[in-house]
């Protein structure tokens, strides 16, 4: 599958798809999208890259084992859930900044939670796919 067209395309597709996945993640609260889909798109981006260039190259780009994204994501999600405790509200109540941020828009604990989901999904799918393709 390592044709030159596919390989060249994958080099451009990876950053584009990753950007797209972040876009999907950010718009999730108002329009179709969200952390789960975003995570899946990001993992597809990496998988395409690994198909075109081989697993080793993709691993070199990521630098660390994708499995580490799972605990990081879980910490994000739990942190977003626990943050309201600091201001004396029950677990998982939504907290929002008063003013919208440039480009991103309204930021609240839900966004951090969704980012957690996003990271876990990338970690899970890449771990499974990489492990299987390595083993076989």
């Amino acid at each position: 599958m390592k044709t030159i067209i596919f390989r060249t395309a994958s080099d451009y597709l990876l950053p584009l798809l990753l950007l797209f996945s972040v876009f999907i993640l950010l718009r999730g609260h108002y329009l179709p999208g969200g952390g789960f889909v975003g995570g899946l798109i990001a993992s597809i981006a990496f998988v395409i890259h690994s198909f075109a260039n081989g697993l080793e190259k993709t691993r070199n780009i990521i630098k660390f084992h994708p499995g580490f994204l799972m605990p990081i994501g879980l910490v994000f999600a739990i942190g977003a859930g626990a943050a309201p405790w600091i201001v004396g509200q029950p677990f998982m109540s939504g907290l929002w900044f008063d003013d919208p941020f440039p480009v991103i828009g309204m930021v609240g604990s839900a966004l951090f939670f969704d980012t957690g989901v996003y990271l876990v999904v990338i970690g899970v799918s890449l771990t499974i796919i990489f492990t299987i393709s390595e083993t076989l």
Partner: peptide, 19 residues
């Protein structure tokens, strides 16, 4: 504070399930 109901359910109303 979200317009995408599906997403709000996932991350807020039923956030605990998602976690």
């Amino acid at each position: 504070k979200g317009k995408n109901v599906v997403n709000v359910i996932l991350v807020d109303f039923r956030g605990f399930d998602t976690m």
